[in-house]
Amino acid sequence: TPCLPTPCHLQYYKLSFFDQISVKEHVPIVLFYANNKFINNFTIDERIEQSLSKVLTHVYPAAGRYDKDECSILCLDQGISYTKAKVNCKLNNFLEKAHKDLSLAALFWPHENKYINKSNLMVSPIVTAQVTEFECGGLAVSLSSSHPAMDGFSNIKFLFEWAKVCKMETPIENINFLRFNLGNVFPTRDISRLFKSTYDPVIEKDIVIRRFSVTR
């Protein structure tokens, strides 16, 4: 949950028209980090959780829940789903296998089916996160967000700022990124005559995975 309560005037977040017509599927991202020998495992666990709580104070819709109209989010600090896990293999060994089979990366992101009540989005987390520790001390950090609330750009920006706050221990008052005003520019509309339901629980969709490598 956010480390500070969301102010009253921000507790009702209106989605934009573009958010309204997007599917409510989750968009997961997973990042892999080598072991940082300068920070022990106990400290890094604590810093990851504390920095996430700080970032959620700023990205308040992520810790809310969809309202019954599904066109807005009630930002009442309900929190996100946060999972910690461990695997009995080393990061380098896993990456060697993942280069040949990208689908292995899917093992390290939170699977929304475990958390999302698709028949009642009002009780389901908008964002789920998972931090997995390898035997060598390396980490897999994953974030999965419901698309109307957090698109791809927002997810990447969220992860980038989370990493910065974790590494630099940035104070809450100095965290400032993303603006939540698109709903004012493109307000929601009655789309009942334009589109069918944006979510069909019967249709199964293939998962497509992409790898982005950064070399130094």
Rank of each mutant, 00 (worst) to 15 (best):
R65I: 06
Y66G: 04
D67V: 06
D67P: 00
D67F: 10
K68R: 15
K68N: 08
E70M: 05
E70G: 01
C71E: 14
S72H: 05
S72G: 07
D77Y: 12
I80W: 09
S81P: 03
S81E: 11
Y82M: 07
T83L: 04
T83G: 00
K86T: 12
K86A: 14
V87I: 14
V87A: 06
N88S: 09
N88P: 02
N88F: 04
C89A: 08
L91N: 01
N92T: 06
N93L: 10
N93M: 11
A98C: 00
D101Q: 06
L102F: 09
L104K: 05
L104C: 06
A105I: 09
A105F: 15
A106C: 08
A106T: 14
L107C: 01
F108Y: 15
W109T: 13
W109G: 00
N113W: 05
N113E: 12
K114G: 05
Y115H: 15
Y115L: 08
I116T: 09
N120G: 13
L121A: 13
L121Q: 06
M122Q: 14
M122G: 10
P125R: 06
V127F: 11
A129G: 03
V131G: 06
F134C: 07
E135A: 02
E135T: 04
C136N: 03
G137F: 12
G138K: 01
A140Q: 11
V141P: 13
V141C: 12
L143E: 05
S144C: 12
S144H: 02
